[in-house]
Design a protein around this nucleic acid. Sequence first.
DNA 1: AAAACATATGAGCAATTGTTCATTTGTTTG
DNA 2: CAAACAAATGAACAATTGCTCATATGTTTT
Lengths: 121, 121
Amino acid sequence: MAEEIPGVERCEFIHVHEDIVKRVTEAMPGEETLYDLADLFRIFADSTRIKILYVLYESEMCVCDIAQLLGMTQSAISHQLRALKQSKLVKYRREGKTVFYSLSDDHVVTILAQGMEHIEE
Amino acid sequence: MAEEIPGVERCEFIHVHEDIVKRVTEAMPGEETLYDLADLFRIFADSTRIKILYVLYESEMCVCDIAQLLGMTQSAISHQLRALKQSKLVKYRREGKTVFYSLSDDHVVTILAQGMEHIEE
DNA sequence: AAAACATATGAGCAATTGTTCATTTGTTTG
DNA sequence: CAAACAAATGAACAATTGCTCATATGTTTT
């Protein structure tokens, strides 16, 4: 953080105190972690994926059922499930031709609930 | 949800039970709420904004200080602060020429913490 | 083995996003 | 009032995203 970046204009003096600057730079997670965190939230940043998560919160469900419930194509849902799968927000099990998806942990629920609380104010 | 959308192919039968379908469609928040929720998470879906939130978690700070700490331009930070302000994640107070920003509530902290927990597994 | 079905995937396109650069707005001080 | 400084804003551009369409993969059934 705060490397020397040429061309970045600076205000004359820094207003925050030394110790705060120190605390900030120490408490800040590494660059890579911050990217991972942003990637995770990017998954929640789409209403289709949120719908899927809400649906799976009620019950494990196959791709086709989700598509039907949400009135969307199988392809669209499958693409989004891949994203949800890659960020480990959902897990799946195969049963013959059918693949059943479900939420993989309850961080999903907590994050969604906190988000709802925030926008409902 | 689940309006008749022409051209959406459907699997032959729905696997989930009637009561589950009913619960799902009842528990699902309205379309507008889901969009607002996605919009909120979109704010968290960028590492610059996450950095700003982490910085403000340590201390109230002015635009210029944040820019310096993160090694970015005043303009870039100001644009991002506008987004954070619009979604009510940060608040501000003016003191002469300087504008100090701070976190507006602790949903921010909870959401970030849950996200961190998830990616750290 | 072939047909049928559920799911996954790749390419392509319109729409959205984050940054930069130039400029404007708002406030203080000479 | 003019100069100086902090912050905000608008236009523009590259990069990313979500969907569709066509097709591939994997599994069951005949």
